Amino acid sequence: MKRGRRAAGVLIVLMGVFLLINSPLVWKWMYPIKYQNEILEASRRYQVDPFLILAIIRSESGFKPDNVSKKGAIGLMQIMPDTAKWIVEQAGFQPKQKDYLYDPKMNIHIGTWYLSYLQQRFQGDVVKTIAAYNAGPGKVNAWLTREQWNGERDTLGDIPFSETRLYVQRVLYYHDRYRNIYSKEMQ
């Protein structure tokens, strides 16, 4: 009799865990959105999927605007200062402060403009765009030209740089998660 109650108790706990894991509130807690207004504004302005922006920010900085990488990339979208300078010139941005890459809104706009630029350069291909955001468009073009990688999602294992390979996998994973959780709310 005790064994039956114990088994029933374990079953109830497992069912509760299953229901909790599939709860939208739990998923939103695991995959929060910060800077939603700034992301949506940049998404509309530069015609970039907001879930891609979220995935990049989550992968790059974990939503920490003061994050600086070992290589010197700054802010939410981890933009290198030289790249930022080029983007500011190309896009006609007019930052009001010297350390503008730490400003979440400016960082999101600069990074999203760059994503838009890369998407145009790679004919809207999200996978190649993500790889280029990490490794640079020149490296991605070289891999494609030398046929080291065909640019497809199902051949990410062929990307010559392990850092870029893992980065693209991570961003695509977060992209899928954010899209599944928030697709009805962020249209």
Rank of each mutant, 00 (worst) to 15 (best):
D176F: 13
W29Q: 00
Q119I: 05
N67E: 14
W143H: 08
F63C: 09
G124W: 14
Y100H: 12
R44T: 13
L52G: 00
F161H: 13
D49S: 14
Y174K: 01
W149Q: 05
Y46P: 01
A7H: 09
V48F: 09
I12Y: 10
Q78Y: 00
V13L: 15
V171I: 14
R146C: 01
G72H: 02
K139S: 13
A132Q: 00
I181P: 01
G16Q: 04
V140N: 06
L54P: 01
L172I: 10
I79T: 09
G111H: 04
K128C: 12
F93W: 09
A73P: 00
F51Q: 03
Y102H: 15
S61I: 02
I110R: 01
M30W: 04
T164D: 12
S23R: 03
N150R: 10
Q119N: 06
Y31V: 04
S43H: 06
Y117K: 10
Y35H: 11
A132T: 10
S162F: 06
G16W: 08
Q94K: 13
I56K: 03
V10K: 11
R165P: 06
F161V: 12
E60H: 10
N67F: 14
I21L: 14
S43N: 06
P95H: 13
L144E: 13
T129F: 06
W143C: 05
N67P: 00
P50T: 08
E163D: 11
V168P: 04
R121Y: 15
Q120D: 15
V140H: 02
R58C: 00
G62R: 07
